[in-house]
Amino acid sequence: MEDNVLLKTINLSKNYYNDKTEIKAIENLNIHVLNNEILAIVGPSGCGKSTFLSILANLEKQTNGKIIMKKNLSIGYMLQSDSLFPWLTILDNVLLGLDIKKMKTGNNIEYTINLLKKYGLYEFRDQYPDNLSGGMRQRVALIRTLATNPDLLLLDEPYSALDYQTRLSLSNDLQEIIKNEGKTAILITHDLAEAISLGDRVIVLSKRPCTIKSIYNINLNNKTNPIDNRKDPKFNYYYDKIWRDLDVHI
């Protein structure tokens, strides 16, 4: 495998079965993920995006095909639902991964607490999730994913439940973290603007069973943070193209 490739899938397929039918969720998917990139994936609802991440995270087994990963690649998966434990405080929730992986060392705890501070959640550390707003809960879920310091982040519509403003500012934060800490991310989103402004590459998937429809390298004139990227002259060009690829019939 090439040096700058973190992970690649070869003819990946996934079928779900029940008594009556067979659902083909993924068919012959060949995707590679480059080191330190944000790979945005867009596609119609129900096409198999979450399934793809679940296979990468080893929660589901593929029906056919192969996944090749860099050695000792650690993966953090932020699920589509935040699944915060209502019986644990915010602090215990974000420390859950460290706890499970038996990595609850002083350094790691400090790292997590710093993340809480950075995201303005430190004052809420002893509260329970029920007392938090939707946006705060999503941030807690993101910190919980980051706490174990994974190399590759799998983000399944991390901001879908948020208002527009919080989304924008979290996009900035997310990009900052990924670029500053040398991480890599696969970002699934329904929001084309989010995909283009945040992603280094955007993969457009077809309807179920999902295969690659097109791949775009996002080359903006002046690539900065996600908020400013949206004002870039070439932003609309990508937006139109991807919109057409998605082929949404209204």
Binding site: A57, N58, L59, Y77, L79, S81, S83, F85, L96, G97, D99, I100, K101, T148
Partner: peptide, 21 residues
């Protein structure tokens, strides 16, 4: 709630962890 269990599995939790946590 299946989501709670999926979450722990994504952290490579063992069955014992899922039971107690």
């Amino acid at each position: 709630d299946k989501n709670y269990i999926t979450l722990l599995k994504s952290m490579n939790a063992k069955k014992k962890d899922i039971f107690f946590k």
